[in-house]
Every structure is written in structure tokens, then in C-alpha cells.
Amino acid sequence: MKRIILITGGQRSGKSLYAERLALSLSENPVYLATAHIWDDEFRQRVIHHQQRRGSNWTNIEEEKALSRHSVAGRVVVIDCITLWCTNFFFDRTVNDWEQPTVDEALKALQKEFDAFTAQDATFIFVTNEIGSGGVSDNAIQRKFTDLEGWMNQYVAERADEVVLMVSGIPVKIKGNK
């Protein structure tokens, strides 16, 4: 039966670890779908740390944009994370900087891909960041990205059966089974 769970919170709030533990409680062989583009060596080390934390019972998929091209029917899948996925649509490396998509264009593409991916009969555990919880940036690009991320988070949360806010490693149920 299809189920969508959204886990949100700040950086280093325990979102990914909680998502992984939840997935393992639901399946012996979950899927980990990583949306990250590896930009530099420091980030590569973060990815390696996450990979080492998971055991060989995980199916690992790396996909920056087209989640729906992967069949996960009947599986439990952790998608980590919406923030990096949004980044891949907002800072599209296939176009020149001056041809960057608008927030509306990127949001529509993300929503279309989300709907196609989650049409499968699976348990989806999406991880995301609450990047809009801080102050308003003085950088126009950052403000636009914060808008994109916030609207995409709202889109996923509206469709989610359950939403969990991570605060200092503690899961707080926001929506769903209490």
C-alpha cells in the first residue's frame, strides 16, 4: 500500500539517521535513493560517511533528477533529500547561468517528477531541510531557492500520510499517526 512520509528539520538534526532506522523497521532490504550531486571533496566525505553507515542490505541508487525512472514498487525507499533534489533543478548544469529556470518552472518540474515517482505502490520516506527557518537572506538567488524549497516541502507535506519534524535528534510528529 502506498505511503508517503516526510522527515524535515534543520541541518544535523538527525533526519537521515531517523529515516534509515524507520526504513529498516519496515523492510529488511530498503532502498536508499540519493539525490546529491557531489560538488567537492568535503561533500564527497559526507556521502561516504552516509554510505558506510548503511549495511549491505540496502539497495543504493544515485539519481539527481529523474526519480521516476527507477522502479521501487513494493519497496521501502528513503529519498535523501528534497533539498539537494531541488538544487539539481534550480541550478541546472545543462543550461547557462543566465538561462537558469524560474522558481515556477523548477517547481512545476519537481512536482511533475514527484507525482510520477510516487504513483508507484511503495513506501516513500522523503528527507528535507527547513532552510527557511532562519533569517531572510540578503542574496536574491538564495531567497529564490528558499522559496522553491519551501513550496516543494509544502507540496510533499500536503500529500504525505505522515510528517515528522526532527529537533536535536528527537522526532516530533506533525501529521499522521500520533
Rank of each mutant, 00 (worst) to 15 (best):
127 V>S: 06
131 I>E: 06
152 M>N: 06
90 F>R: 08
114 F>C: 03
108 K>M: 14
61 I>S: 00
149 E>A: 08
104 D>W: 09
90 F>P: 01
102 T>V: 09
119 A>M: 04
103 V>Q: 04
140 A>P: 13
63 E>D: 02
92 D>I: 15
95 V>A: 07
149 E>Q: 14
118 T>L: 00
113 E>P: 02
146 T>P: 14
107 L>D: 04
64 E>K: 14
130 E>P: 04
98 W>E: 13
74 G>K: 11
94 T>Q: 14
105 E>Q: 09
84 L>Y: 12
121 D>R: 04
73 A>C: 13
130 E>N: 12
59 T>A: 11
100 Q>T: 13
105 E>H: 15
138 D>K: 09
132 G>V: 12
143 R>G: 10
81 C>W: 01
126 F>N: 04
109 A>F: 05
97 D>W: 11
110 L>A: 03
131 I>Q: 09
143 R>P: 10
61 I>K: 03
64 E>V: 07
144 K>Q: 10
110 L>M: 04
115 D>P: 00
109 A>R: 08
131 I>M: 11
85 W>N: 05
92 D>S: 15
96 N>Y: 14
116 A>K: 02
89 F>I: 03
95 V>S: 07
134 G>K: 14
150 G>H: 12
112 K>D: 03
125 I>T: 14
99 E>Q: 12
143 R>E: 14
123 T>P: 04
139 N>C: 09
132 G>C: 14
60 N>W: 14
130 E>C: 05
130 E>D: 13
117 F>Y: 01
62 E>R: 09
120 Q>C: 02
114 F>D: 02
95 V>Y: 11
57 N>A: 11
99 E>I: 10
122 A>L: 06
128 T>R: 03
138 D>G: 11
60 N>C: 12
109 A>M: 06
143 R>L: 15
113 E>V: 05
138 D>S: 12
66 A>L: 08
87 T>V: 10
112 K>S: 08
116 A>V: 03
111 Q>M: 02
87 T>F: 05
119 A>I: 13
104 D>L: 08
121 D>G: 06
131 I>C: 12
114 F>P: 00
116 A>W: 00
103 V>E: 06
83 T>S: 05
65 K>N: 11
98 W>L: 09
104 D>H: 07
66 A>P: 10
107 L>H: 14
152 M>G: 06
130 E>Q: 13
123 T>F: 01
96 N>A: 11
70 H>R: 08
102 T>I: 13
114 F>N: 04
57 N>T: 15
91 F>G: 10
137 S>G: 08
86 C>A: 09
